[in-house]
């Protein structure tokens, strides 16, 4: 009985201390932020209720977009090498083969209408700074035309499988122009020097960010970087919830590749220790019977 009392005292003291330095200190240092919004309600320049016409969209995209963007899925190759594209625009314009799938439709329409406000980069691109976002705004286009572009991009969007290869495709399409993922052998399409000039800093290698930031942080950060890193130059990329989950799944597959092994082995080892402790208890009882 006495031993249980001692154990209880220790557990209480350790428990209070643990609570203080882990969950509580964490909540002080990382306060909760607004929940992620995957509908991107704050941008509403384009009436997204209009039904798009993919055929017209194709014409518009070919006239307006493929001078900068490759769309391999529709047979439009890049017109320049990555090095030249980075030199011209600061960053390599992403291939749009996946755009219709990975970007939320509301975000995408409003992004085409005005990239800077959709990406939450007004602090960087404004009259005062005199900086110009490399992609033009199509705010002169009729909402119907913009919705046609969205419909076209959705109609050609590459379908991917729900596995590591699929997750990788999503990651490369969404983040690959800026971020390395060294542990998967992925190098950003834009050279580091260009990125440094364009972004003000070289975007970090994401190999271990699933561990250093964790899923919870990434969930809100990728949805809108400004919420957690106010003033950062990383844009809001506008992924759908599903695409974002695929990106984070990929970060975990690369950054924490032994998770499944850890979880299954863990249960076995703990079960083994339970049996061990039980047998040890029987042995102890037998031995101590003689002396008590």
């Amino acid at each position: 009985m006495k031993e249980f009392k001692i154990l209880a005292v220790i557990l209480i003291l350790v428990g209070i201390t643990y609570y203080g330095i882990e969950p509580y200190a964490h909540s002080v240092m990382h306060p909760e932020v607004a929940p992620a919004d995957f509908t991107f309600q704050d941008v509403k320049n384009v009436d997204t209720k209009l039904t798009g016409n993919a055929a017209n969209g194709k014409t518009l995209v070919e006239a307006n977009c493929i001078a900068c963007h490759a769309i391999e899925a529709a047979g439009n190759p890049a017109v320049m090498s990555n090095a030249d594209a980075a030199a011209s625009y600061g960053v390599v314009p992403p291939d749009l083969s996946h755009a219709g799938r990975i970007y939320d439709a509301n975000f995408l329409a409003n992004f085409v209408f005005d990239p800077v406000s959709a990406m939450h980069l007004q602090h960087k691109y404004n009259a005062e700074s005199g900086k110009q976002f490399p992609m033009p705004s199509y705010n002169w286009m009729a909402p119907q035309d913009i919705m046609d572009i969205v419909a076209y991009l959705q109609s050609i969007a590459v379908k991917v499988t729900d596995d590591k290869a699929g997750h990788k495709a999503t990651f490369e399409a969404a983040c690959g122009r800026c971020h390395n993922m060294q542990y998967a052998g992925i190098e950003a399409t834009t050279p580091a020097d260009n990125l440094k000039t364009y972004m003000g800093t070289v975007p970090p290698d994401l190999s271990q960010y699933i561990k250093s930031r964790g899923e919870h942080y990434l969930h809100s950060f990728v949805n809108d970087p400004q919420v957690l890193l106010k003033g950062t130059s990383m844009p809001r990329v506008g992924l759908t919830e599903k695409a974002q989950e695929e990106v984070i799944a990929y970060m975990e597959e690369i950054g924490d590749s032994k998770k499944a092994e850890r979880n299954s082995l863990g249960l076995w080892v703990m079960a083994y220790m339970v049996v061990f402790a039980f047998l040890a208890y029987l042995w102890k009882r037998k031995i101590w019977e003689e002396v008590h």
Binding site: R262, L265, G266, M270, F278, L279, A280, K284
Partner: peptide
Amino acid sequence: KDVFVMGVFLIFFFYLVF
């Protein structure tokens, strides 16, 4: 007795490890 304490401790320890 120590081996028994060790056994109980190790359940906790491996929970933390994994």
